[in-house]
């Protein structure tokens, strides 16, 4: 397994807006994550993601000024109003090249959500300001980032064969625009800028501050 942080190192103090799925109140997802923490804590080569900061990135936008953030949030909410909430399966946890993740299924609905938010954001910022569009969305929830180069075969085997924690399920009702910061080699944290509910025409919420844990 490779060092995640070696290839994910933001300039000091930089903040980047992201569209995320968040798991606040998703008790089944936190149950799944908590069940794996004792195992992950056995590996100092892993940096576990604290429960309050569990997230699934839809895409990174980059720095936004307040006016841009408000416009992107409003555009996102307008776009997701036309998407129906959907059921999401989270897990089983597996190791990848730079950490431990839970795949998200089904990816078709996730991709529709990604694409709606991407297009809405591009309408506000312009295509030149956007990251390359993805043809597919491989959504995942990170449980831990690798902080070293190491042989994770034993952990991979344990995840696949020894743990039998049932996968988690939740209903995706909204996406969240966040103003994210990186505490390098520790965690990602954010302030919420806006919420984009699915299946309704209402919704840009006020900014709510969250403290870093």
């Amino acid at each position: 397994m490779r060092d995640f942080w070696a290839t994910h190192h933001w300039p000091q103090g930089e903040r980047r807006a992201h569209w995320h799925l968040l798991f606040d109140g998703a008790t089944d997802v936190h149950r799944l994550a908590a069940a794996h923490q004792p195992l992950l804590a056995q590996y100092p080569q892993l940096t576990p993601v604290p429960g309050p900061w569990l997230h699934a990135t839809l895409f990174s936008i980059g720095p936004l000024d307040p006016e841009q953030a408000q416009a992107v949030g409003a555009a996102g909410a307008k776009a997701t109003a036309h998407l129906e909430p959907f059921e999401l399966e989270i897990g089983s946890p597996q190791s990848i090249h730079n950490g431990i993740i839970c795949p998200l299924h089904p990816e078709e609905q996730l991709h529709r959500l990604y694409r709606a938010l991407y297009d809405a954001t591009a309408q506000v910022l312009g295509a030149d300001a956007m990251p390359k569009v993805n043809d597919r969305t491989w959504g995942h929830l990170s449980l831990a980032y690798s902080n070293a180069a190491w042989d994770a075969d034993a952990l991979t085997r344990t995840l696949v064969t020894d743990l039998r924690e049932p996968r988690a399920h939740m209903t995706v009702t909204h996406a969240v625009l966040v103003d994210q910061q990186q505490e390098w080699r520790r965690l990602y944290s954010w302030n919420t800028l806006a919420t984009a509910p699915l299946g309704t025409a209402t919704a840009t919420g006020p900014a709510t501050e969250r403290t870093t844990h």
Partner: peptide, 17 residues
């Protein structure tokens, strides 16, 4: 699914558990 590369080869995880 998802497909998983592990120590012994490649497998598909299976559910519902």
């Amino acid at each position: 699914g998802s497909p998983v590369a592990n120590k012994a080869g490649v497998l598909l995880d299976s559910g519902p558990d």
